[in-house]
C-alpha cells in the first residue's frame, strides 16, 4: 500500500494501462510540459513519447472528434478536455458521433474512447469552470458515465474505462485532486464499471451520492450516528449504468432514500434514482442538490450554493421524524 493523491492515482492507472497496451494514448491541451491540470499526466510524455501523450491545439471539437476516429481506427484514445465546462464545445462529437456510431452503423463500429472531463467546484473559478453536468450524459444512449470519488477508485475506474469498448465519460472532481488515500500498487486489477460501493453500513436510511459529495454525506452520517441515527451511505461510482441492485437492496433494508449531489437538483440524476426507487419500492424518497443558479465566484456566494453536511443531517432528521 502507498499513500497517494487522487491525481497521482489516476496518473498511475493511466501509466499502467499505457504500458500494458500500446494502442492506449492520450490527447489534449497541456499534457506534456504541464502534465495536465493537476499533474495527472506528469512525465508520461517522457516515458511514452509525444505521439502517445499528444499536446493539442485548443480545438475541443477535434480533440473529441479525433478520438472518435482514432477509436474506430483500432486505438484506445483518452480525450482530455480539462474541464467538463470546455467539453461542451465538443458535445456534438461526443453525443452525435461517439455515442451513436455503433448503433447507427448496425454494430459495425466500436468507439473505445475515454472522454475525460473534470467536474465540480474547486473554489473560486466561478460559472464556467465549476459545473457538474454529469446528468446530461446519463441521458445519452451509448455512453457510460463514471464519477470516481477516491484515489484508489480514480486508478481502478480509469483502468476499466480505458479497457471498455464503449465510449466512457470520465468525470473526476477538481476538488479531489489533492485528496490522499491508500492505493495497492501490486494489485493491477480494474474496478468494474456499474458497481457501487457501500461507504458506510446503516439501518435507518440510505443516502446515495457520488464524487466529492460522498465525503460531505459521510460527515453528516458520522454526526447523525452520535444521535443514534444509522445511515447507510452508497457511492454509486458509475452513474450509467448505475448499480440498481445495490441501491434497491439497501433501500429495501432501510426503507427510506435520500439522494445528494453537488449538481443542480432540477433535472439532476438524483431525480432518476429517486423515481426508480419510489416506483419499485414505494418508499419515501427525497433529493438534495444545488439550486438552479450558475456557480458564483465570491466565497459566501459559492458556499451558499453547496450542500453542506448540516443540511444533509437536517433533511435526514425530517425524513425520520
Amino acid at each position: 500500500m502507498s499513500e497517494m493523491t487522487y491525481a497521482q492515482a489516476a496518473r498511475l492507472g493511466l501509466q499502467e494501462e499505457m504500458r500494458r497496451d500500446p494502442t492506449v494514448w492520450a490527447l489534449g491541451e497541456d499534457l506534456g510540459y504541464e502534465g495536465g491540470m493537476a499533474g495527472q499526466y506528469s512525465d508520461l510524455q517522457a516515458e511514452f513519447g509525444d505521439d502517445r501523450i499528444v499536446d493539442t491545439p485548443i480545438s475541443e471539437s477535434t480533440i473529441m472528434g479525433a478520438a472518435v476516429g482514432a477509436a474506430m481506427g483500432g486505438t484506445r484514445p483518452i480525450a482530455e478536455l480539462r474541464f467538463s465546462d470546455f467539453a461542451m464545445c465538443a458535445v456534438d462529437e461526443l453525443v452525435n458521433q461517439a455515442a451513436k456510431a455503433r448503433y447507427m452503423f448496425g454494430g459495425q463500429a466500436r468507439v473505445p474512447m475515454v472522454a475525460r472531463m473534470p467536474i465540480g467546484i474547486r473554489g473560486g473559478v466561478a460559472a464556467q469552470h465549476s459545473q457538474s453536468p454529469e446528468a446530461w450524459y446519463t441521458h445519452v444512449p451509448g455512453l457510460v458515465v463514471v464519477t470516481p470519488g477516491t484515489p484508489a477508485e480514480n486508478r481502478g475506474l480509469l483502468k476499466s474505462s480505458i479497457r471498455c469498448d464503449d465510449p466512457v465519460v470520465y468525470m473526476e472532481h477538481k476538488g479531489l485532486w489533492g485528496m490522499t488515500g491508500q492505493v495497492d500498487e501490486s494489485d493491477q486489477s480494474a474496478i468494474p464499471l456499474g458497481v457501487a460501493r457501500t461507504v458506510r453500513d446503516g439501518r435507518d436510511i440510505t443516502i446515495v451520492s457520488w464524487s466529492a459529495q460522498v465525503g460531505v454525506v459521510s460527515e453528516a452520517a458520522a454526526a447523525l450516528s452520535g444521535e443514534g441515527i444509522s445511515v447507510e451511505v452508497i457511492d454509486l461510482r458509475t452513474l450509467w449504468p448505475w448499480d440498481r441492485e445495490a441501491v434497491m437492496a439497501s433501500v429495501s433494508k432501510t426503507g427510506k432514500l435520500l439522494v445528494v449531489h453537488e449538481a443542480v437538483r432540477v433535472g439532476g440524476f438524483g431525480g432518476e434514482i429517486a423515481a426508480e426507487v419510489a416506483e419499485e419500492l414505494g418508499v419515501p424518497v427525497a433529493r438534495l442538490g444545488g439550486e438552479r443558479i450558475p456557480i458564483p465566484f465570491s466565497i459566501p456566494l459559492e458556499e451558499a450554493y453547496k450542500i453542506k453536511s448540516d443540511r444533509i443531517a437536517a433533511r435526514v432528521r425530517e425524513m425520520l421524524a
Binding site: 490527447l27 499528444v54 471539437s61 477535434t62 473529441m64 472528434g65 479525433a66 478520438a67 472518435v68 476516429g69 482514432a70 477509436a71 474506430m72 481506427g73 483500432g74 486505438t75 484514445p77 462529437e93 458521433q97
Partner: peptide
C-alpha cells in the same frame, strides 16, 4: 473532418 484526422492518427 475531425473523425478523419483521428483515424489518421491511429
Amino acid at each position: 473532418c475531425t473523425i478523419s484526422v483521428g483515424a489518421a492518427q491511429a
